[in-house]
Design a protein around this nucleic acid. Structure first.
Lengths: 138, 138
DNA sequence: CATAAATCCTATAAAAACTATAGGATATAG
DNA sequence: CTATATCCTATAGTTTTTATAGGATTTATG
């Protein structure tokens, strides 16, 4: 399961995308709208900003805004940033790979093979679906 | 990522499948072979037994053994038993569903839609691939 | 320049989950 | 009867997750 952090990030990004025309959005506005602890959300938005996904403006009239269009932000990017690996095992992770301690040869490990397929199926969706795809449909 | 518990369970099940002809296998043998804490493994095997996946025999000559053929044990069963939900969000989980607090209508939630697809793609593999599929290939 | 508004930054607290260990109870083979 | 092995439940230790705190910094505005 995705952490609360990542879940909150998605909801915040949705709010920012849906209010992109109104200039910078206050943390407090997002927190209230999405029922998120304001201080927790602050840390999350800061991380998204440091990763280049969001921009911000300080002082009066300030707030957060998207640095790219929703279509350019794949869901996998957000998950990896806040949750880490998407794969089910370290030995099949593309971005957080760790060698399997137990098995002698990953190339002939059946578990490795199946979990690689799960990873591929998951990534096919999460790399191609973007913030645009999770905005309210209508 | 899958917990150590589930990872250990897979390795233990593989060992049991590959030694099914030799009668009950000792916890200590599996622990040594797969480098798992014997006491931790004991708890895991007990859980698998209570779920009907393994059988056991006490006393001299005792140990654990599979209650079904490897082909009859889907990977999803093991993961759900030891790790819980396979889905990335509570609101798209089939076995551990929880209503989404934030969104008003899950039927039109784009996040729900994408994560449902991820779940379906993952389950298609994990429900159909079994212990048999992760045994060493040769 | 002074002030208020807002993010920035880092530390830490609180809670939960995960990993591991302990030790006696129970059953069984011989 | 004894040794062997699982059964069972409690608890300890560690890490991760979730949340909070509070001062520093930047900026708009009068």
């Amino acid at each position: 399961m995705l952490s609360k952090k990542t879940q909150y990030a998605f909801h915040a990004l949705i709010h920012l995308a849906e209010n992109a025309d109104k200039g910078p959005v206050l943390i407090s506005e997002i927190a209230q709208e999405k029922n998120i602890s304001i201080k927790f959300l602050e840390n999350i938005l800061l991380e998204l900003k440091n990763a280049g996904i969001l921009g911000s403006k300080k002082g009066k009239g300030g707030g957060y805004y998207l640095m790219r269009t929703p279509k350019e932000i794949p869901l996998a990017r957000i998950i990896r940033l806040l949750d880490g690996p998407i794969a089910l095992l370290p030995c099949v992770s593309l971005n957080y790979y760790e060698r399997c301690e137990t098995c002698k040869n990953e190339a002939v490990c059946g578990l490795n093979e199946v979990m690689s397929k799960v990873r591929d199926a998951t990534l096919k969706l999460l790399e191609n679906k973007t913030l645009k795809d999770i905005l309210t449909r209508n």
